[in-house]
Every structure is written in C-alpha cells, then in structure tokens.
Design a protein around this nucleic acid. Structure first.
Length: 802
DNA sequence: ATGTAGGTGGTTTTT
DNA sequence: CCACCTACAT
C-alpha cells in the first residue's frame, strides 16, 4: 500500500515524514527541543507494524525514563487503535463512543503490543537477565541466578562500606565509601572490569579502588545481587561470551529504536552494538537487509556526562553503523522546527548554545510568534527570590478565578534550593509538587516490606536480611548479629543458611537464639506461600504475619497511620503490576520497584499544582511558564564546572534544556547574595549565561524585596519532613520563616564609611552595605587582611569613632 | 538491647 | 545547616 495515503503520515512535516518512513538500515534523527521527536518515534513504530509487516515482537525501543516508555506505549496504542477503527467500524476514531474506543485500545494492547519491548536500558536489560543470567560464565567463577536482587544506591553503599572497613581494614573517613562507589560506578559505565581498571591505575589510590571493585563484585555475587550498573554491564559480558545468547537477541530485535541517544554511555553503546551486529566480526560490515537501528537525540541536550554519558557516541553514529566503509548514504535527518516555544524564547536559547564549541550545527526555527520578552528578576537574597517567584505566580494565576497552577514550573540546579521556595509557596497557599527527592520506594516502611520479599525470593541477600532481621523488634542485638555474620563469612555461606540451622545456632549463640528462631520460623512459613502467590498477596502476608502492621496499629500515631497508608499503597502497586503484566511474578515486581522513580508516577501529573524540580528532571517536559532560578556563578553554572571548559559547556546545555522547556513565558532569577548552607551569606556574581542571552530579548525588573507583610499562620506544622533515613522529623523549625517574622532590627547603626574593629582582622572600613533592616550584611575592608562580608548581628565587631 | 546526645563531615545532577 | 555515626547511659 502506498504509505502516503495513510493517515499515519497526515500531521507530519517533511522531515518527520522522512524519519517515520525510514524502514531498514541505520538512521540518526537529530531532533531539537520541541521538534516532535516523540511523534517521529511513535509514528515510525506504528508504521513498521502497520504498513511494513513488522512483528512487534521484533522491536526494541529504549527510552530515558519509565514515564516516557509508558507514554509512548499509550500513544502507540491510540495510533493503532485509530487505524483499527476504520477497519472494524468503517468510521473515524473521533466519531466512536468512548466505550468502543477503549475496547479497541484493549484489543491493540493485548493482541499487538504485548510483546513489544519498550522501556529504559535498565528495565529492559534486567528483563533480559531474568532470561539468561544463569548462562553467564564468569572468568572469576562468580555466578548469579534469575532470582537476583537489585541493589539501589543505599544497599550497594552499605555493602561496599562493609568491604572497605571490615575486609580491607581501611578507615571509612579517609576512604569515603560514597566516593569509591562513584569511582567503581564510573568504571562500570565505561565497560571496565576490575582487572582492566587495575591495569589503568596510576597510583596507590586507584589500585585500592580497583581492589575494592574486585571485592565488591564478589560480594554482590555472594548476595546474588546486582547494582544498577551491573544491569547493563553483565549483559555486555554475557552477549560477548555466549554466541547462542547473542544470536537469539540479535535475531529477535531486528528493529532497535533509542531515544535520548546523546545520553548513552559506553556500556549501553556496547550493548546496542552487540545486539545490532550479532555474530558478525566487528571488522566485517554486515548487511542490514531486514533490520534497522533508529536513534533520536540532540547533542545540545546532553546533560548526563557525570554518569558517564558521552554525546560523542551520538556524533559518531554514522561512522559506527554505516553500511560499507565508503558508504556515502546520508543517514541523518534533522528536525529543526520547534512547535513549543515563542520565537523570543528560541532566540535566547539559540544564542546561549552558540557559545558551545562541541556541537552538531543546528538552529531551532520558531513556528510561533515573538511572544513576550524574557524577564530577568534580580533579588536581594534567596528569600526575596522565592518571594518574587511566588508573587509573580500569584499575579499571573489570579487573573483566573480558578488558577491553573500546573502551568508553572520552577527549575533549579540543586535540590537544596527548593526549600526556601517551598516555604514561600506554603506561606501563600499555592499548591506545589516536588519531583525527585524521596522516592516512594525509598521510604523506610516500603524498603522494609520489600526487603522481606527480597529475602523470600533470594535468601542469599544479606543486606536485605540484615535490614529486617530485627524489624519489628525481636530482641536480636547487634552483638548476636555480628557474631552470626562472622560465622557466615568464615564458612562463605549466606547468613540465612547459618541462622536457619538449629544446631549451628545453639552451638554458637546458645540462649540468645530465641529471637532468631522466631524470625526463621516466620520466614519458613512465608516461603511456603511463595510458589503459589503473587507479589501482592505475599506482601499482605508478610505485613500481617511479621507483626509489622500490628506494631503500626498499636502505636496509633499520625506517623504510623501514614506508614500504614503507604504500605497499602505498596500492595495496590503490586496488584496493579499483576494486572498490567498478566500475573507477573514477584521477581518482576521487585525489579519494577527498584527501577521506578518518583517522576515516573503519573498520578502526580494530574494535580493542579506548581511543579518544582531540578533542571535535570525537566528534560523532555514543557510548561507554559518557566522560572529558572539561582542564575549565579558557582551555583548555576556549578562551582565544580566553572573552571573546566567541557564541564561548563555541559552546564550551558543544562541551561539550554531549561530555557527550551518554556512555551510562553520565561523568567530568569538570581539573588545578589545567598546563604548556601546556613553559613555566612555570600555575595554572588550573576551567571555568565545571563550575559550570553541578547539584551534586547530580556526585560529587567525591579527586584521584589522580602518585606511583604506576612501573616503568621497555618500549615507550617503540616510541613512534615523526613530525614534521609526516612524517619519523620518532628517540629523542624523553619529558620527563614522565623527570621522573617521576628520584628525589626535593633537599629541600623551602620553606615557607609564607618570604621570598626574586629578581634581577628583588626581595623576595617565599611565599603558596602548589602540589604537593610534585619537582613543586613557589611562589606568591610581590613587593610592587608583583604575584604570580608560580615553579618553585624553575628560578627564580633564594634564600631570605633574615626 | 535500645534510646539519645553530641560531634563530625558533606552538599550537583540520576537509572 | 542537616543528617549520619558513635559513644554512652539506661
């Protein structure tokens, strides 16, 4: 059939059409922000299935987030259902009743899309490992089975810390487990084995890290566990060594699509290459015949190099996948029409990004009119910044009787910046949602419940076992656990094997084994249910039989009520998982739990609230009104990037991503001074990025000071906070609020040119006064000691008469 | 075995 | 400033 007649192609521009109609061979789609790349992707998949007889079973589609995967699947469902509508009902989709529409979608979902693999690299390849991990033969003799646990950052750090302190006998203060984990992760993302890392090491510390990596790997395998990076790294080794496995996946995934290709790292790239080329020698060029690889990306939006993403992979695409050495065929399509933002916003973004050197030349062309100029909001400090943002949102929102808060997004470089903004929003009763931060699955009670399930599935998982062995309290103490753990290590057995052995217990810890017995009996009883129960039922049983729920009910506090609700929510999530996957097993549910982030949660999107998130989290989203905050040197761009050109370019790309999120209005804010971590306020320098946007596009504005009349009130007690261990923190005082409420200062006795005496710096002269009233800081010049910024309420200074 | 006080160290971005 | 860890008291 002639594809041109197909409505699949109706709403596409010329370039999008070319992309969608690409069938075999490699293709790189360079897609600028807002240029309709998701459309190109979904329509191409539909085109493959609908018009080119491709079985969805043979398609692998990689997205950057689970949310994107979900959305893509839904869009695909609708496209195909529309197609089906004309065939089944002989009438267009829009004229069908909702009931019929839904029925068609269900049909498509069940009959056509069930076998389509679509998801993040991590979720897709954890799935692949569930099939084939037992076929992996490790050169060091390590092994895993398909019940493997997935360790999150905390779990793996716990494990690594144990290795560093106990096995290697190093001082964790000198050798920070976090940093070592970071280094190991980096190696894994570059596809390096411990051995390769060791060969590359140049100094003692590098050697130590390689050693830790080696031991960490062994420890993971003893726990039958993998960390996030392993989910990609292990498949690479498996596919490299096992021809049969490689051929299987090569033959299965004939059409590979990858979104956000600029954020691919070496390991992911290796993975894709292995599956695409299959059993051919890398020296040889194979025929594409009936297969394709289709990647979409934008080098200007590459913002994840800190986790080893490398956008040069995108730039090298043509070289990597061209047909023959001399192939001249053009396998690049550029999407440059932007359908999202006003022309002013685009001009600003284009000007900014032109300051980067490493790029694929590309200019976003506006399809919308000029719109309003960008607004620059300069503020005294971070509190007035927050107030200015809030007041702007209020004035724009109040034009409407029922304001649509979800049209607003506040973006920041670091999470720490959100706090002050939250306080301001709470004060003005503006509803907001923070993305990122504490994951649902990271809450204490959820991690506990999941740990039970993990141990039931994989009893070698010591980290999870140790987490729950005394939760709820069974009177098992630290020394007992320590003792047993030592025995387990000595015998090279999982801790579970040791505690599940009555003789062993009695001979080693004797009378203090009561609690342990209670625990093993519980787990043995629960194990009986594993085979015939789904994850939701198992969780329910765990919570009841362990006494976890009872304990929460007994305590009867608001906090425990909240925890119970969360646990109910967890059971619901498991039920939903079972429905979506048609009786998916507990292993699959655990993988979902490990790999789901908060921003994947679609429930949040429907609420009418202002969005707060990091710039990183904003990738792929769009909002009517966007605030980019904290545009100061050292904050954005970050102080760690400021002196390194390549890192600075990444910050600039991050800024570019931020700018291009906005559809209509864009606000840029900065504070003239800022308290970074409660310490002294620092005078700031406006971000270099502000200078890189043409002046004529920006409209300055008089900064709003923090001195709006504030009514003491409400809600502050509802700002329940949770610490990093997920315990609720009671009555956290909110300092900035307190500061704003406390009355006027004891008087402004300081003025320019005054002389003062400081015990450490000596005599100084006030050369500048920042702020006024309560929030005053003095810049004082101390002769040979240089200048300092002082807070006169804190600094031990007294004025002297000249 | 468990709870709490105080000292200390760390602060970019995430699957 | 905040969260974590350790040491100590119960």
């Amino acid at each position: 059939m002639s594809p041109q007649n197909n409505f699949l192609f109706e709403s596409l521009n010329k370039e999008q059409f070319k992309a969608v109609n690409h069938i075999y061979g490699p293709l790189l789609v360079v897609a600028g922000a807002g240029s309709g790349k998701t459309k190109a992707l979904t329509h191409r998949i539909a085109n493959l299935i609908e018009n080119n007889n491709v079985n969805p079973y043979n398609i692998l589609a990689v997205t950057f987030t689970n949310k994107a995967a979900k959305e893509m699947k839904q869009r695909l469902e609708i496209i195909l259902a529309k197609e089906l509508a004309t065939i089944r009902f002989g009438q267009p989709w829009s004229t069908l009743k909702e009931f019929d529409q839904n029925q068609l979608r269900t049909v498509i979902h069940q009959e056509r899309l069930q076998d389509l693999w679509i998801g993040t690299f991590h979720s897709l390849f954890s799935r692949l490992l569930r099939f084939d991990i037992d076929k992996y033969k490790d050169p060091d003799g390590l092994s895993w089975n398909r019940q493997f646990s997935i360790y999150d950052e905390t779990d793996s750090q716990t494990l690594l810390k144990e290795i560093i302190t106990k096995e290697m006998q190093l001082d964790p203060k000198k050798f920070n487990p976090k940093k070592i984990k970071w280094a190991i992760s980096n190696a894994k993302n570059q596809c390096l084995t411990p051995k390769e890392l060791e060969e590359k090491s140049e100094n003692q510390i590098d050697k130590l890290i390689a050693d830790a990596y080696m031991r960490y790997r062994i420890a993971l395998s003893r726990n039958n566990a993998l960390d996030f990076d392993d989910l990609l790294l292990l498949p690479v080794f498996l596919l490299r060594q096992n021809h049969k496995v490689r051929e299987y996946w090569h033959k299965r995934f004939m059409h590979i699509l990858i979104d956000e290709y600029q954020d691919t790292n070496r390991t992911q790239y290796e993975l894709i290459k292995l599956i695409t080329t299959g059993d051919t020698d890398s020296e040889q060029f194979f025929e594409w015949e009936d297969r394709s690889i289709f990647v979409v990306g934008d080098a200007d939006q590459s913002i994840y190099s800190f986790r080893a993403a490398d956008f040069r992979i995108l730039i090298g695409f043509k070289e990597d996948f061209k047909n023959k050495p001399n192939d001249k065929s053009d396998c690049i399509i550029k999407l440059e029409n932007n359908y999202r933002s006003t022309s002013n916003i685009l001009s600003a973004a284009n000007s900014l990004i032109e300051n980067n050197t490493e790029r694929i030349e590309k200019v976003l062309k506006a399809t919308k009119s000029d719109g309003e100029p960008l607004k620059l909001i300069s503020c005294d400090d971070e509190i007035s910044e927050a107030e200015a943002i809030t007041s702007k949102i209020r004035s724009l929102g109040s034009k409407n009787n029922s304001p649509n808060w979800s049209k607003f997004a506040i973006l920041y470089r670091t999470r720490a910046q959100s706090r002050v903004i939250e306080e301001s929003l709470v004060r003005w009763r503006i509803p907001y949602t923070i993305y990122g931060g504490l994951r649902f699955y990271d809450r204490k009670e959820i991690k506990d419940a999941i740990a039970y399930l993990k141990v039931l599935i994989n009893n070698a998982d010591n980290i999870s076992l140790l987490r729950i062995i005394n939760v709820p309290r069974r009177g098992i103490g630290k020394t007992t656990i320590e003792k047993l753990n030592e025995i387990a290590n000595k015998l090279e057995l999982p801790l579970w094997e040791v505690i599940n052995n009555k003789e062993c217990l009695i001979s080693t810890i004797g009378r203090s084994s009561k609690g342990i017995n209670q625990f093993t009996e519980l787990m043995n009883e629960l194990t009986c249910y594993v085979e015939n129960s789904g994850p939701s039922q198992l969780l329910q049983l765990i919570l009841e039989k362990s006494g976890y729920l009872n304990e929460l009910i007994m305590s009867g506090t608001d906090e425990s009520e909240e925890r119970r609700n969360n646990l109910q929510e967890l059971v619901n999530a498991a039920i939903q998982y079972e429905e979506e996957t048609e009786n998916g097993d507990a292993e699959g549910f655990l993988a979902t739990a490990a790999l789901t982030t908060d921003s994947d949660d679609n429930k949040k999107n429907v609420s009418n609230s202002v969005t707060l998130m990091t710039l990183h989290n904003s990738k792929g989203l769009e909002f009517q009104n966007v605030f980019i905050t904290g545009l100061e040197q050292g904050l954005f761009p970050s102080y760690r990037s400021i002196d390194t050109p390549s890192l600075l370019e990444e910050e600039r790309r991050l800024c570019y991503v931020g700018l291009t999120r906005a559809k209509e209005r864009l606000f840029l804010t900065h504070a003239r001074e800022r308290r970074l971590w409660g310490g002294n306020r620092e005078v700031t320098i406006p971000s270099i990025f502000l200078q890189e946007i043409p002046e004529e596009l920006i409209d300055g504005e008089i900064p709003q000071s923090g001195g709006i009349s504030l009514k003491r009130d409400f809600h502050l007690d509802r700002l329940t906070r949770v610490d990093r261990n997920n315990n609720f923190v009671k009555n956290t005082p909110i300092n900035s609020v307190r500061r704003l409420y406390s009355g006027p200062t004891k008087g402004e006795k300081w003025k320019l040119g005054d002389l003062l005496l400081h015990p450490k710096f000596g005599k100084g002269e006030i050369i500048h006064i920042f702020g006024s009233g309560e929030k005053i800081s003095l810049a004082v010049k101390f002769g040979d000691k240089g200048s300092k910024i002082l807070d006169p309420r804190i600094a031990p200074i007294r004025s002297i008469n000249s």
